[in-house]
Simulated scan of single mutants.
Amino acid sequence: MRGHALRFYATCKDLCDALDDVSSRIELKYIQAGMHDHYPDEFLDHRQVKSFGVAITGDQVLEPSFLIVRLEERVQPRIVPQRRGGTLIAIDQSENPRSVVFRPGGEYGDGGVIVAGELSTVSDDQASIELWKQISKDLKRLWKKIKAYYVSPHALTVLRQGGRLTVGVKRPKEYDLREEP
């Protein structure tokens, strides 16, 4: 497994605009990844997802992530027995190899901070790789590359106005993304 990842900084508006573009060609659905007490809701439109493109925790690795699959795909949960009894439902790529993982990141707090997001797959399944390529192609086309990240237009404005583009608000500012002069 080689994996593919596209790292980015984007505002909610820019994410929605880019995914609208993708959705005009491919019917997709979104489901929150992770461990759950019950099967999570599936969304046919990214705009239906609560807090989409808004960073809740301020730390990229703690932000919600979603599996994206083509509309006709059935998302398979993985039942995980717990040591103290009961079970949890895992939604991840291990049972859904035709999916991609989307962690939107987004605006944190008053809007002067953008937390990094990522579109990735660790699957070797050709359907997953093609889906990753199709979505990442639009993001790359619409956004500017700065170092290892793609930056959406509104996130670039935040950066140029002195805001932070960061993987975590508690990390020192010297690790934030900066535009080279």
Rank of each mutant, 00 (worst) to 15 (best):
Q76A: 04
G86N: 09
S65G: 08
Y150H: 15
L156V: 07
D45R: 14
V158I: 15
V22M: 13
H154D: 15
W143H: 01
K140Y: 03
D176S: 02
F66A: 01
E42L: 07
R25T: 06
R98V: 05
R178V: 13
A33C: 06
P153L: 08
Y108C: 10
Q48R: 13
P97N: 12
S99Y: 11
L131R: 00
L28P: 02
Y39S: 10
G86L: 09
T11E: 15
S51G: 00
R83I: 02
S94I: 01
E63P: 10
V158S: 02
C16D: 12
D20T: 15
A155S: 15
V80P: 09
Q32Y: 02
D110P: 01
Y9K: 08
V151F: 05
V54K: 04
F52T: 05
Q134M: 11
S94A: 04
S152L: 09
K145Y: 10
F43V: 01
S24C: 14
V115D: 09
R74I: 10
V113K: 14
S120L: 03
K50S: 11
V61Y: 11
Q82N: 03
R160I: 09
I26L: 15
K29A: 03
L131T: 00
V49H: 04
S152D: 12
Y108S: 04
G86I: 07
R25D: 06
Q32M: 10
H46Y: 11
A127Y: 05
I146G: 01
L165W: 02
T11N: 14
Y30Q: 01
V113M: 13
T11A: 13
G105H: 03
M35S: 09
P104E: 08
S128P: 00
G163D: 11
R78Y: 09
P104Y: 07
L159F: 12
Y108N: 07
R160N: 14
G3F: 01
R160T: 11
S99Q: 10
K144Y: 06
L67S: 07
P77C: 09
Y175K: 12
K133E: 06
G106L: 13
F102N: 05
V122F: 02
Q60D: 06
E95R: 10
F66K: 03
G58D: 07
F66H: 03
Y39Q: 10
I56S: 03
G85W: 05
S123R: 00
L139S: 04
M1C: 11
A5I: 11
I135P: 06
L88C: 07
D14W: 07
E27Y: 11
Y108F: 15
D14H: 12
V80H: 12
L44P: 00
L71N: 13
C12V: 02
P77N: 05
Y39H: 08
L159M: 15
G111M: 13
T57C: 03
G162W: 09
V169I: 15
R171Y: 15
R171G: 09
K145C: 13
R78E: 14
K173M: 06
G112A: 09
I91L: 14
S51E: 09
